[in-house]
Design a protein around this nucleic acid. Sequence first.
RNA 1: GGCGCCAUCGUCUAGCCUGGUUAGGACAGCGGCUUUUCAAGCCGUUAACACCGGUUCAAAUCCGGUUGGCGCUACCA
Length: 482
Amino acid sequence: MIIRTRIAPSPTGLFHIGTARTALFNYLFAKRYGGKFILRIEDTDHERSKPEFENDIFEGLKWLGIAPDEDPLGGGLFGPYRQSERTEKYQIYLEKLLSEGNAFYCFHSEKELAVEQDRWTAERKQAFHECEYRNTPLKEGEQIKKEKKSFVIRFKTPAGVTVMFRDLIRGEVSFETSFVGDFSIAKDITVPLYNFAVVVDDELMKISHVIRGEDHISNTPKQLLLIEALGFSRPQYAHLPLILGADRSKLSKRHGAISLNEFREQGYLREAMINFMAFLGWNPGGERELFSLAELENEFSFEKVQKAGAVFNQEKLDWFNAHYIKQKTIDELTQLCAPYFNPESRIQNPEFLKKIVALEQPRLKKLSDIKESTQFFFKEAGYDATLLAWKDSAEEKTIRALECAKTLLERIADPFEKIKLQDVFFAEIDKSFQGKGELLWPLRVALSGKKTSPSPFEIIEILGREESLRRVNGALMNLKRR
RNA sequence: GGCGCCAUCGUCUAGCCUGGUUAGGACAGCGGCUUUUCAAGCCGUUAACACCGGUUCAAAUCCGGUUGGCGCUACCA
C-alpha cells in the first residue's frame, strides 16, 4: 500500500501549535514509509475562512521544513485541494446518498432541535437527533423543501449497530449507532458539512492514514458510517493525544494556543520547534532527546506515541531552543539575530555585531533576547544602585571596588588585549578584597546595568576605556548620592 | 447529563505487551565544582506508579471496580 497522510486545517484562525504537531506527525509517518504528505484546506465554512489564515499555514509548514507533497499551492493529481473548490464532487455523493435512501431532508427548525436537546438532557439521556423525517420519501422531501425555507440534509443512521475501528495508537474503539443519531451532512446539495466532506475527500485523494487529534475520535463513527454507505474504503486511523495547557485542558485559541509563526517571530529555531513538538506525545524509548528532522523521520512509529494528553511546557522548549542556538556558528547566529537588534545597532558594522552575538550566545534562550541583552553596548542602561553590591557586601566595599577599578582603568592604555587586562586587574587587586567577585560584580553591573551579562573584561574591550570609565564614574556617583 | 478516551516525579516521559528494576532519563527546582563576576558547562540531589479489590510465591506491569481528568455532544471544523 502507498502511504498517503493528510492534514486538513480550516483557515479560520492562525496556524497553532496543535495543528503544527499534527502536521509533523503526518509528515514523519509518511516519510518513514516513503509515502506522501498532503495538505487540504477545509474551508467549507466560507464565512469563517480567511486567506491570511491559509497563508499562515503555508508559511508555517514551509518554515518548519515539512512542506506537503500535494497542496493548494503546488497542486497534485487529486486536486483541487481546497474544499471550496470541490463542490461538484460532494454533490455527486450527496445525490447518491439521497437517492439510495441513506440520507434525507430534515425540516426541524433550530428551535425545535434545541427543545429536543433539553428534553434529552432532562431525561439524562444522550442528546442526539432521532429525526421524524428519516423515512420521508425523497420525492416528498423535495416537495416540502419548496415550501419550507429551513432544512438540512441528514444521514439516516442505522439503528442498533456497533461501529468498531482499530486505532493505531489506542487499539479497538467502538461506538453504538444508537448514540450517534441522524447527524447532519450538508446544509444543501451544494453546501456540504465537515463529516461528509472529509469522507469524500479522503476517498478521492486516496488517503490511507488519517492522523489527527484525539478530539476527532467521536467524529470517527459518523465518518465510518458514511464510508460504508458510500462503498468507500476505510483508511487507518491514528488519534494523537491532545496538547494541553498548564491547567490540563485542551490548548485552544482562547487560552494559550500560540500560533506557530508567533514562536518564529519570538526567535525560536525550527530545529527546536520540531524537536520539541515531536516529543509532545511521542518518545523513542531510549535516553536520547536531541533529534533532527531527518533522524526523526527514521525513528517515528505509532507504537511509541502516548495515549494521554501532554502539557505544553515552555521551559522545555526554551531549553531545546537554547541548545540549538549554541549549536549555531557565529556567522549563522548573527544572521538569525539580525532582525532582532535594536535600530541603533543596525548601523554598526557586521564584525561588531558578530562580536556581541558571540558574547551573548550562551545566554540566549530565544533570538529576540538579543535586543534586550545587548542594548547596553549602545546606550548606557539605567539600573537600581543596589544592584551594584555583590551578595551582601557593604556599600563602602562596593565603592572601594569601583574606585579600584577606576584607577586601574585610568592607568591602562587603550587599546588593550583581554588577557592583559585581566592580568593587570588581578595583579593589582586590593588584597583586602575577600574574593574577586567583590570587584568583578560591581564592575560588571556598572558597565552593563544587568545582573546577567558577559564578563567585565569582555565588555570593557568592546566599550573602550573612555566609555568604561564614564560608566564606572556614573556608578560611583550613583552610590555616593544615596 | 450522555458517549468516548485517558491515568508513573511539578512537567515531558522510559519501564507495562512478554509480572521479579535501588522505578531510569530530560526540563524546572535545590546544592556543589569551575581556587575570578553573570551565564554556559560539569557533578550531585529532591521528587512519581490515583485508589480499592482480585489473580500470583511475586503486580507499576495482568483482570475487575472506584475516583479523577480530558474530549465530543452544531445547520463549526
